[in-house]
Amino acid sequence: MSLALETRDLTKTFDVGKRLLRPPKAQVHAVHPTSLRVENGETLGIVGESGCGKSTLARMLVGLLPPSSGTIEIEGLSGGSSPADFGRVIQYVFQDPVSSLNPRKTIRQILEAPLIHLHGMGRSERAARIDEIFDSVSLRGEFLNRYPHEFSGGQAQRIGIARALAANARILVLDEPVSALDVSVQAQVLNLLADLKDELGLTYLFISHDLAVVEAVSDRVAVLYFGAVVEEGRAENIFASPRHPYTRLLAESAPVVGRPIGGQAQGELPDPMNPPPGCAFASRCPRATDICRTDRPELRPIEGDQRAACHHPLDP
């Protein structure tokens, strides 16, 4: 298999309390050095709790946010490329389907934008392509002349997916694409994504806070905590036999019928402006020892292709 996307030590630091002439008051490390590899045709799931840096990472991958350091390699693209250059190879599907569509444009105008600006298509060519895409996301052609507010969440998300497909990119970053949808509609959209992937040979980065959804759609999963990947492995193993204590906490916290309420670890995320020196999970971790509070653990292979950033990884 060939590589679709690779990041090397990608980081993002935000300045908070910007001032006109003096340096900012503080810095927030939203994404710590992160190295990810995604193969062509693969689905990489990215899970983590709110504020752990999922969206920031995703926005860097599609060129909406310049990284503070590190590199992104996507089919030969690298630093300095414009969102338009990125747009032809990687696209983004947003969490909130309704606010990702301009309320004052018709669906046709929205879908035409990437065809015009990324591919310079003529009028008749565009019409044919839009019909084809609309068909592939199972929407009726008559919707094309309507405005976004006339659609339900599930339909709007199909339109968002159609726009990403219109750019003809081979890699899609799906940022919580079904979180705003009801469960019965969620399944419709997930199945649509699976079909499109098979038909068009797409590569997905699937971001979600819902472990069960991620497990159901991904080949591999990366678990993010406090801006860093703490564990990475095959979807069928990572929650079934987690090696990082945080992954285990996540898996035990997920409500599953027939299992008692689990995951009782107390405590909260560390302060991002004042990150602890060692492992970010140490204050909540039952296995923490002295070294955990002083040395930051590196992501390292534990078994097979399962990797974890922990000084005392769990036994399988």
């Binding site: 339900s152 399944a187 419709q188 699976a194 497990e215 159901a216 069928e236 929650f239």
Partner: peptide
């Protein structure tokens, strides 16, 4: 509806969506 919802531990699988709204 229950068949629509992925459950943790069931691995990768096809979901049985309910058509319509």
């Amino acid at each position: 509806l229950i068949a629509c919802v992925p459950e943790l531990g069931a691995g990768r699988r096809e979901l049985h969506a309910i058509p319509g709204l």
